[in-house]
Design a protein around this nucleic acid. Structure first.
Lengths: 346, 346
DNA sequence: AGTGTGTGGGAAAGCGCATTCCCATTGCTT
DNA sequence: AAGCAATGGGAATGCGCTTTCCCACACACT
């Protein structure tokens, strides 16, 4: 990646380095117009592209925003990424991407890499995990982030603060009202569903999942309904699918009508697919609700009852949109939790 | 983003800058173990994080891969992004992201920004457009890329070469057999569908779309079928939806059975949604096929006949996976293009 | 005419690091 | 024991740029 340099431009234009710099890369001092023109011409002729690395080094600000997600191909994360990307564009920065499949140790590595690149800020979008096997890595991650913040970095976290983090200067958490929204969802579902509820959740310790489970249970309790049974599985489509296979048995074996809450849409889709493959129809034989209101899945039928989350805004906020704002979601009741019409119910 | 520097570490460890550098950032020369240990201790104590910018400047290689997509939240692109991300990880690099909504002028800007950051390579994933209003921007984009390549950059393009590009050193196109696969799809569909075909394509000039249209027409011709009518619309869900609304009228007005090929899955989904909202059922009243076999949409029902594309591999290849490999897709016939069972046909 | 003020270009000092070159030391060889 | 290569640490240079400081000059003022 060799390219022509500022000093080449300066030489060709017959001016000093300082002048060339002032002309080409916005400074407070504006050289005379005739000189400026000569410099611009020279730059054009040489195909000069300023070296951002060198600029960053000289003025110690890289114009980079680091984004950490579990999986960029997951629609939940790609929606957030879009928001981050937009914010970056507005701030005239660029987004550095890191996917970690959720392992805190990978996240730590990513933070270190971002810190090495002197990213101006870091956005961590994946859900935090309090699982015992992650404890050690979490501590290290927290340490890495603290160090980053102490050195003047800004970090925006979606959902929950990093476990064990001590600093809070430069620290910024975008609170997602997972628990409240899940409670509200439970409440609204309880209004139309009389049977039992089952929750299909992610692995124990995953905050996002746990929050939604807790909220849902609270909502049920407030509505005077018994606690729902919780099935633990993977926090992705495959997890939902597995749970679906297990539940299909139960549904076919009894004639109790179940309302199943999968803690995210992608899981709900997997769940539905499994049930369908076993001959269980939604909403004929059971009800299903999800969470996130993923855009790509809205055309899915039966339309999924879910909770809308402004993912793009969340990304924007985490990336430090100066406008600020807070996260409000809303419950979307759709066909997947309607009572079956009599004529279909056979 | 101030942080402790190598020279601080060196001073604390009581060694020279050179030695500290050799210890901490893999060099061919390995200092003695006791000294190395002292340096590492000092680094640890100071929380030293090497400045990648400075390293890049010193050894002129940034470890960055630039990725340009139309929209990171589009599942097509996020799947490719995942592949790029993986390749980057293997190469020990990081991914710089840029979304451009498909405007060549934005793409040019992104390339310039990547060049400024001295990205080692650039991956351009969005489809090229030959639309007249983009002509000027395309020329500029090509120029920018040529310059980047001339300066030693590598670029990987998915699908088609940049219009008007002259260089080919460092230039690398991942060919996607859109046309052939579309032809094959048409061929297989022609085997079971007797009525007319309609193609819902993107705007004229968009290569990916045009290729698929051309291929589909060729496939029809080879199967001895008349050319399909082509409807031009947006290359996204909204475009598909609009086309669906228009087609619903026609379908309801005649009793001819249509097979509609939407040039990508997301459009096909929009199309289906529109038809459904107008009371047209798939596959009862018409057939629909898409393209891409987007993972998230596979659970969609009626299951979409489509063409599988190894998007992740495509991303990996474009990012310069040393393993190489070529892109092979395959036709997936599913329920959306099956003939309706008699009992449903009423 | 002499001093003051402002204007605008240039020289040079870093920013944090890799790397080349140099030199002192050590351990061998004959 | 003298001469040699090999080993390993340090000084210094440069990567490309920004920015401070300095200086020459032009103009206006008393």
């Amino acid at each position: 990646m060799a390219a022509s340099t500022l000093s080449e431009v300066a030489r060709l234009a017959g001016v000093s380095l300082a002048t060339a710099s002032r002309v080409l890369n916005g400074s407070t001092r504006k050289p005379a117009e005739d000189i400026a023109e000569r410099v611009r011409e020279a730059a054009e002729k040489l195909g000069y592209v300023p070296n951002a690395q060198a600029q960053a080094l000289a003025k110690s600000s890289s114009g980079l925003i680091g984004l950490i997600v579990h999986d960029i191909a997951d629609p939940y994360f790609s929606a957030i990424a879009r928001g981050v990307q937009e914010a970056a564009r507005q701030q005239n920065r660029m987004v550095l991407l890191a996917s970690t499949s959720g392992a805190p140790s990978d996240e730590r590595e990513a933070v270190a890499a971002f810190a090495a690149r002197r990213a101006d800020s870091i956005v961590i979008a994946g859900s935090r995990s309090a699982a015992p096997e992650h404890e050690q890595s979490n501590v290290e991650l927290a340490a890495e982030l603290d160090r980053y913040c102490r050195n003047g970095g800004h970090v925006g976290v979606v959902g929950h603060p990093i476990v064990g983090s001590t600093t809070d200067e430069g620290y910024h958490v975008v609170e997602v009202p997972n628990e409240d929204l899940a409670a509200k969802l439970a409440d609204e579902l309880a209004a139309s569903h009389e049977g039992a509820f089952v929750i299909v959740g992610g692995p124990e310790g995953l905050f996002t999942s746990d929050d939604r489970i807790r909220g849902f249970q609270r909502g049920l309790a407030d509505a005077g309904r018994p606690r729902a049974e919780v099935i633990r599985t993977g926090f992705n489509r495959a997890g939902g699918y597995d749970a679906g296979l297990a539940l299909a048995e139960r549904i076919k074996a009894s004639d109790e009508r179940l309302c199943i809450f999968a803690v995210n849409d992608v899981m709900a889709i997997g769940l539905t697919a499994a049930l369908r493959s076993e001959g269980v129809w939604i909403p004929r034989d059971a009800n299903i609700a999800g969470f996130d209101d993923i855009e790509t899945l809205r055309d899915f039928r039966p339309a999924l009852s879910t909770v809308y989350l402004p993912l793009e805004d969340i990304g924007r906020l985490a990336a430090g949109d100066p406008e600020g704002g807070s996260v409000v979601g809303s419950v979307k009741l759709r066909r997947s939790t309607e009572l079956p019409v009599e004529s279909q119910a056979g």
